[in-house]
Amino acid sequence: MWGEIVDFAYWVVVGLFLIGFFGVLTDTNLIKIAIGLNIMEASLLLLLVRLAFSPGDSPPIVSEGILNYADPVPQALTLTAIVIGASTTALLLSFIIKTYKYYGSVDLKEIRRMER
């Protein structure tokens, strides 16, 4: 199941993903949930970049005398993912601002208590 080598970058990817997911699962502060989602997203971006790169590769900008380039396709996908992540985060944060203006709190427990 484990293969021979699990790259160090993969440990960072899984670690970041789990940290972010732990925050999303357990925290009750909406801002911290947004931060957790962003950490999860960062780990996936790192995975995409890692998949495009093997040691010794140059960035995919063609110039003379370079033979090995990193794969440009996952990098372009990463750019797309960053942009979409930023947009969704902006929308998420504005919903949180609206929630704060309505309830006076961003803590889910307090909001639930007020709803009762």
Partner: peptide, 20 residues
């Protein structure tokens, strides 16, 4: 839950082909 998830994800990543 996270420990189980982490094990599964690590197993999956270990099976990925190398970039080259």
């Amino acid at each position: 839950i996270l420990a189980i998830l982490g094990l599964l994800v690590m197993g999956g990543l270990a099976e990925l082909p190398l970039p080259a």
